[in-house]
């Protein structure tokens, strides 16, 4: 695509609002209309790809009850048919429409226009931690590579009757983490990778710390992932500034209920001589280290599109952790 190097004006792309002003109001619900006509919304959407781009101004009439994704869809339908935006359920459950609205990482489908100051221009930009594929769509493959590095749930042998039993109280803690919709807003806002790209190869990020915590707390799981999370997945890089918790659309307490419990478990394993002495004296059985089953890890799934990675000399992170050519 042709990529704008300078922000384009509204008139160049969207008719500076005049095109949108005449758009019919669906179902006649233009509740904000007054004697002078519908109130106009001013939006700036990011247009471009990984090589560059800029904000482009759009004006559309305000309609009652809309979320940001609705407005973006109207812009796409009426002014910018080539606008790329990823979405699916429009119900906050698929995690597809993650973006940054007025600089805050949010789901477009769960951000009501009525919660924004529509007297000012609203900016919608792609997630900054990941490469832009086009416009508001980012390449989140990094997350799938990390996911594949996490040893899966590994239960022990079943009980004599061939079943597994768990008490509800043991399941409750992990259930919170299972609410995750993998929107990757927490990954996006985490400054460890957002501001320091060089940490990506050895940092799992909040979403996967939540996954690891869920596995570590699982009453039937038999693996010990503490060394893995500490040495290879970068738990120590997290400085618990709680931004992941702030942006989570599912309200998961990622920091308090996943990352800090994981950090404390790592302290048990690596920094606490009292815990070490207790293990030695009481001869507690040690769970199997995660590396014992690492060979059984499933093959990673990720973006193989050569148009995404077919660059002259891309530094890429492979499933096997080695540099490879796209």
């Amino acid at each position: 695509m042709s990529v704008p190097t300078e922000p384009r004006t509204a008139g160049a792309v969207a008719g500076n609002g005049t095109a949108g002003a005449g758009a019919p109001a669906p179902h006649g619900t233009s509740a904000t209309a007054d004697a002078t006509g519908p109130r106009q919304l001013h939006l700036q959407l990011w247009r471009g790809d990984a090589d560059g781009g800029g904000f482009v101004d759009y004006e559309v009439p305000a309609l009652e009850g809309e979320v940001v994704l609705d407005v973006v869809h109207r812009i796409q339908a009426e002014h910018a048919p080539d606008l790329a935006v990823r979405w699916n359920c429009k119900a906050g459950k698929c995690g597809s429409c993650s973006a940054e609205i007025n600089g805050k990482p949010r789901l477009m489908c769960m951000t009501r226009m009525s919660t924004l100051d529509t007297s000012q221009t609203i900016t919608v930009s792609p997630m900054r931690a990941f490469p832009v594929m086009r416009d508001l769509v980012t390449d989140v493959s990094y997350n799938f590579v990390v996911a594949a590095r996490i040893p899966p749930f590994t239960p022990g042998p079943p009980e004599p009757d061939g079943t597994y039993r768990m008490a509800q109280v043991d399941v409750d803690r992990g259930q919170e983490m299972r609410k995750c919709i993998e929107c990757f807003l927490c990954q996006n806002v985490c400054h460890v990778i957002r501001d320091h790209e060089d940490n990506k190869p050895h940092y799992a990020g909040p979403r996967f710390f939540a996954r690891l915590a869920e596995l570590e707390m699982h009453p039937l799981d038999t693996l010990d992932r503490r060394r893995l999370v500490s040495e290879q997945l970068g738990l120590g890089l997290c400085n618990i500034t709680k931004c992941c918790t702030e942006v989570c659309p599912e309200g998961i307490h990622i920091t308090d209920n996943a990352i800090i419990p994981l950090k404390e478990r790592v302290v048990d394993a690596r920094y606490d001589p009292v815990a070490w002495l207790g293990r030695k004296l009481l001869r507690r059985p040690r769970p199997a280290p995660a590396s014992a089953v690492a060979v059984d890890l499933p093959v990673a799934r990720g973006a193989h599109d050569p148009t995404i990675d077919g660059r002259s000399d891309p530094a890429v992170l492979g499933r096997n952790g080695r540099r490879s050519d796209g």
Partner: peptide, 16 residues
Amino acid sequence: DIPGVPVRIGQARGGP
């Protein structure tokens, strides 16, 4: 023997 999954690290991301 598992081929690498190409994910760019350290390249321009685009965006603001």
